[in-house]
Measured scan of single mutants.
Amino acid sequence: MAASAHGSVWGPLRLGIPGLCCRRPPLGLYARMRRLPGPEVSGRSVAAASGPGAWGTDHYCLELLRKRDYEGYLCSLLLPAESRSSVFALRAFNVELAQVKDSVSEKTIGLMRMQFWKKTVEDIYCDNPPHQPVAIELWKAVKRHNLTKRWLMKIVDEREKNLDDKAYRNIKELENYAENTQSSLLYLTLEILGIKDLHADHAASHIGKAQGIVTCLRATPYHGSRRKVFLPMDICMLHGVSQEDFLRRNQDKNVRDVIYDIASQAHLHLKHARSFHKTVPVKAFPAFLQTVSLEDFLKKIQRVDFDIFHPSLQQKNTLLPLYLYIQSWRKTY
């Protein structure tokens, strides 16, 4: 089996927390979720979201995140109150960019949308954001926290390059993509939290790379249903696996070995980020709550012996909000 052949990389499970039942964490995340308004986002309300009498641009960002990046939404709820709305805006910006690729039928249209967001970032730093909910909220975040323009532009530029429907040539190319998107998002989150620390940035770099790799793995069944495969070609070739094997949902050992190798790289990034947690300011830990969902996925895929098409991998963990709150309460990542 794939797991038994390579099992030495995987460390002990961390979500089991001995003695936790003896201490009762304060009510927090679930209460916040219940208090949030929840009407559906419609095209009509989106168009009017920044106008008078609408929910408001902040509510639009929150709803977009809740629907399109639920794990990011849950993590954002546990940030300090003064930072929450800015991170909602930042993550909503990322969602807007991420959904361009799947929402257009022609690359030219995707490039036009990316050009809109490039100009939007430029206009935000000229205090002239367009009348668009996410743009307005992002402008507020930039003004409030003096966010670095370079990180925002890196996210747009990398998403634009990724409009080509090509597999990553190697794991390094996937890591570079993750660094310029997910890690950049974390650098900006640290700025919102008021953290300027080399060790925190180092952790953000590795956690962002782990996030990018896990996202690529999780999306494999969806991409396969659209006749697309984006997994690193070098690892596929190493194990003699073709793109057609993934399109046919082949579950042979060599296919699972490909998934094992890729998942192991995410695991190593996560492990390395945690190896120097004592040197990272505690104030930075809330920015890294996504490690909970990353670890949850890596454990699940290990349990199914790296069968990327196993139905259990597509099921939401209903206990994730609780695990996130516990992680926040324990002040760790």
Results as ranks from 00 to 15, higher is better:
I192S: 14
K299G: 09
D165V: 11
G212S: 04
P321S: 08
R84W: 07
K119I: 03
Y73E: 02
I171M: 13
K143M: 07
K278E: 14
V87A: 15
V255L: 13
G72C: 08
L294T: 12
N94L: 03
L163I: 13
K283A: 15
F276T: 06
F246W: 09
E179M: 03
S293W: 14
T148A: 09
Q182E: 13
N254P: 15
F230D: 09
F285M: 14
K299N: 11
Y60G: 05
P133F: 06
K161M: 10
P286G: 13
A81W: 12
S293F: 11
A141S: 10
I192C: 15
V104P: 07
K271P: 01
Y260S: 05
P80L: 01
T215I: 07
T220V: 15
D252H: 12
T148D: 05
H145N: 10
I124R: 03
L62A: 11
L62F: 12
P80G: 10
Y187K: 07
D69M: 00
Y125L: 04
E160F: 13
P52N: 12
M112N: 14
L152P: 00
Y222E: 07
K143Q: 13
T215L: 13
S105Q: 11
V87S: 14
I195H: 03
A167T: 12
N162S: 12
I124K: 01
I207R: 00
H310R: 00
Y333F: 11
I136Q: 13
D165Q: 15
K119P: 02
L163V: 13
S205Y: 05
A135K: 00
N317V: 05
K299A: 14
V229P: 07
M233W: 07
R66G: 04
P221D: 13
S45G: 09
N250K: 13
N162T: 06
K166C: 15
Q99A: 15
T57L: 14
T120G: 07
G212F: 01
Y177R: 04
I213P: 02
E160W: 13
L111Y: 14
S264L: 07
V282Y: 07
R256A: 10
I213A: 01
V229Y: 04
S103P: 07
Q314V: 06
T220P: 01
L289M: 09
M112K: 10
V142Y: 05
D201M: 04
I301R: 00
V100N: 06
R144I: 06
E191T: 03
E175Y: 02
K119L: 04
L313G: 02
G72A: 15
F93L: 09
L79T: 15
Q115W: 07
S83D: 09
S183W: 00
T215K: 05
P321H: 02
A167I: 13
S85H: 12
L138V: 12
L289A: 07
H277F: 06
D157S: 13
C61N: 07
Y333C: 03
K283W: 06
S105W: 14
Q314I: 11
T148H: 10
L111K: 09
P281D: 08
D157W: 10
L190Q: 02
D157Q: 12
V134T: 14
E82V: 12
L268K: 08
M114H: 10
L78C: 14
V156I: 09
H310Q: 04
C75I: 15
F306S: 00
H267L: 07
S275V: 10
Q315D: 12
D69F: 00
H206T: 01
H269R: 05
S83C: 12
L79Q: 11
R84I: 08
H145V: 03
K172W: 10
A98D: 05
P221S: 11
T148G: 08
I171T: 08
L79G: 09
L152V: 12
D58A: 11
T189L: 15
D245S: 11
H206G: 04
D123W: 05
A178I: 00
E173R: 03
M114D: 03
W55Y: 13
T291Y: 01
Q251N: 15
I155V: 10
L313H: 02
L152M: 15
E179N: 04
V292G: 08
L320H: 05
R256L: 03
D197L: 01
V104T: 15
E179I: 03
Q182D: 12
I262R: 02
R249L: 11
A287Q: 01
W117I: 04
K149Y: 05
E63F: 06
R256N: 07
R144A: 11
P281R: 01
L147N: 01
R84P: 02
K228H: 15
V95M: 06
D234V: 02
S293L: 11
P286M: 08
G208L: 00
V95W: 05
W139L: 05
C216H: 11
N254A: 15
T181L: 08
P221N: 13
E295P: 00
D296I: 12
L64D: 04
S312A: 14
L64F: 14
C75K: 02
L97Q: 04
F88C: 14
H277S: 12
G110F: 05
V282T: 11
N176H: 13
G53V: 14
S103H: 13
Q265T: 14
A266H: 01
W151V: 08
S105Y: 13
P311R: 09
A135Q: 02
A178H: 01
L217A: 02
P311Y: 07
T220F: 06
S225V: 15
F93K: 01
Y125K: 02
Y187C: 05
I136T: 11
K118N: 06
Y222V: 12
T148M: 04
A141H: 01
L174H: 00
K283D: 15
Y187V: 02
V142I: 11
A219F: 04
V104F: 09
L324W: 06
G110H: 10
C216K: 02
D69G: 01
H199K: 10
P286W: 11
C236F: 09
V142P: 00
F288L: 08
K316T: 15
H272N: 15
T220Q: 10
L62K: 06
D307I: 03
Q182I: 14
G56S: 11
V241M: 06
V258K: 00
V46L: 14
G208I: 00
F285W: 15
H239E: 02
E63N: 13
V46M: 09
N254W: 05
N250P: 09
A263L: 02
A266W: 01
I235C: 10
L324Y: 11
P321W: 03
N128S: 14
G110D: 06
P232L: 01
K107Q: 14
L97G: 02
G56T: 13
S76R: 02
H145G: 05
S103Q: 12
E191W: 01
H202R: 04
V104E: 07
E160N: 15
P286S: 09
E160A: 12
L64T: 14
L79V: 14
L289H: 06
K271Q: 09
K316E: 08
R303E: 10
V121F: 03
R218Q: 10
L268P: 01
F285V: 13
